[in-house]
Amino acid sequence: MKKHLIFLALTFGSGLVFQSLFFYIVPTSVPTPQWFLLGVLALGAQGRTKTATTLGFFWGLAQDAFGVTAFGTQGWLFALAGYGAGTVSKYLNADKWGAQETLTITATLAVAVGVQVLSALFVDAPVGSPGWGVVAVQTLLNGLVAPAVFWVFSRWADLWVLPVKNA
């Protein structure tokens, strides 16, 4: 349990560090891969549903706190994405490229739609949709980097030798 919490905290911290470094190099004005979402999906696809849901919740809130979406929007959507990926992990092989891409593209589009719906429902003056062109580019970028992210998270989890049933 203790090991699991350390894993959770370190993964959360490393994700924030990576995101900060990434945005130090790449300007935030251009579409970039959604690293947090991909990380959540990678963990969920390994069957680590609770870890993916928890990290999705906190990473999403971190994005909300720094971003333009209402506080809680991405926190909820990423938590849902983690839970969804964990639930369907029984039916797919996360090591297969096709499964990774399907999961990534579906989740990216679902999150994009979710952000729009939640903004429309909960925000009085939404900042405006980024447009489906941006969503398409983001989906493409997510799809391109997804295999690498899935591989990194698989190796990272292997390092900790955590049983999936406790995760």
Partner: peptide, 26 residues
């Protein structure tokens, strides 16, 4: 446990979204 966790996070997020103008949430 996973479903309960999701329920809890969903509840919190919905609360944040519903009371987004509230001083506590801000």
């Amino acid at each position: 446990k996973a479903a309960l966790l999701l329920g809890l996070t969903s509840f919190l997020c919905l609360a944040f979204l519903s009371w987004s103008a509230d001083r506590v949430v801000r």
